[in-house]
Amino acid sequence: MIARLLVGLVRLLFGAYPRWLGSAPGPGQRIYFANHGSHLDTLTLWAALPPALRRRTRPVAARDYWGGGGLKGLIAGRGLNVVLIDRQRSDAEADPLAPLHAALAAGDSLILFPEGTRRDEALPGPFKAGLYHLAQRHPQVELVPVFLDNARRSLPKGSLLPVPFICTARFGAAIAPAPGEDKDAFLERARAAVVALA
């Protein structure tokens, strides 16, 4: 109910049109990884997915921002069914990716912003290592690059109200770590795959 309302509202205000350029929507398990410039990124990418895929796709969100109560908590929890991760590690021993591993093991797909934070630029910055570790642990999961257009213009960092620009999500061809490819090389290739869709 909340999810349907959210999708309807996002569609009406921002369009949230999908462009399947390098891949087609499919039932396989995936990690969609995208550039991050706005709080709308999660909503527009999620709303751009076909309903059947949307039900099995969970956005990854920071506990310090989305984990609270109120409207944000309602949107994140009841609406988007997010996987919360800790950006500030309280326990040095704990694996911050543990909830993501669990979600993937349960058969869900994920939406991930590997930059880790919102940037005020059109093109993404360096990726954090999470994407690489997830790819190593779950080789059956397809890694699909996505470029999100205009969400940053609609609701830039530091503004409270959105301007309704037409937002599109461009899906590229899936990538996978090559045998022997080291972490930094893979992360740079993943970033380039997102940039190539811009």
Binding site: G15, D120, N150, P156, L161, P164, F165, I166
Partner: peptide, 27 residues
């Protein structure tokens, strides 16, 4: 009008400094 204005400003290059003006236009 809302949807037409949305199409127009999406194609028009705008910057961060236009945010308040665009909010006034739409809302």
């Amino acid at each position: 009008s809302f949807l037409a204005l949305r199409e127009f400003v999406t194609l028009t290059p705008t910057r961060r400094g236009d945010h308040a003006v665009l909010l006034l236009c739409f809302w």
